[in-house]
């Protein structure tokens, strides 16, 4: 028998390989993130001071929506070609295998957002002292988005009309991350401490790490039973 860690690694590497093979698709959420965030200056006002004050919110909402779009990558293709079935039949505890799939998803979809975010900060006139908080909050927050999103992706994976459904299921659950993430950046911009925000996001990350893979496995088992 093969060890659990080897199976997790194999799952992780497979998903990264697949993402690498479909490089074009990989860029879509990122481009979406850029475009959506640049709509705000056009829609609201290009005044740098005003933009700077709402930039944390814009960037965080943009990251949230981009993650939401990318959740389709997680299980949908696997479900359509039957590899999800074979995945669920792996003789290792599924909770951990799902966790490594989610981790791969974050590397593919979440991490690029964290890296691009400072660029958007510059374009939106984010105060200089807020960049560390921006990166930090996104670094802790985007994995939570992937973890919570996995539950929704698992529940909707077999559905033909799942596309519109997923945001309805998941967005309300994203609210705490949005609140703490955006306000961390805002507070940092105003020169205030952000320890509390970071602590909350960290705690929430651990909490979702414990809960979400379990719920996702239950959801996936349901979805293949259809």
């Amino acid at each position: 028998m093969i060890s659990l860690s080897a199976a997790m690694l194999a799952t992780f590497r497979r998903d990264l390989l697949l993402a690498y093979r479909a490089k074009g698709e990989l860029l879509n959420p990122l481009m979406f993130f850029l475009i959506v965030s640049s709509l705000f200056p056009l829609a609201v006002s290009p005044d740098p001071e005003f933009l700077g004050s709402i930039a944390p919110g814009i960037i965080w909402v943009g990251a949230l929506l981009a993650t939401l779009l990318s959740l389709d990558l997680l299980f949908k293709a696997d479900h359509d070609d039957g590899t999800l079935e074979q995945f669920l039949l792996m003789p290792q505890p599924l909770v951990f295998l799902v966790l490594s799939k989610i981790l791969a998803h974050w590397c593919i979809a979440g991490l690029p957002l964290v890296i691009v975010a400072p660029l958007l900060g510059v374009m939106l006139g984010l105060p200089e002292n807020a960049y560390f908080a921006l990166m930090m909050s996104l670094l802790l927050g985007t994995p939570i988005l992937s973890l919570l999103g996995a539950i929704g992706a698992g529940l909707t994976v077999g559905l033909k009309k799942g596309g519109m459904l997923l945001p309805l299921l998941i967005l309300p659950l994203y609210i705490p991350v949005l609140i703490f993430g955006a306000s961390a950046v805002q507070s940092a911009g105003q020169g205030m401490a952000i320890n509390g925000h970071i602590a909350f996001l960290g705690a929430y990350l651990f909490f979702t790490l414990a809960v979400c893979p379990l719920a996702t496995v239950a959801a996936l088992k349901l979805s293949v039973a259809r």
């Binding site: 539950i151 529940l155 929430y204």
Partner: peptide, 18 residues
């Protein structure tokens, strides 16, 4: 059932953050 269980676990966190 899965969704509402996940939701109810999150409600205290949502309430607190709001």
């Amino acid at each position: 059932a899965i969704l509402s269980i996940v939701g109810v676990i999150n409600i205290p966190i949502i309430k607190y953050s709001v």
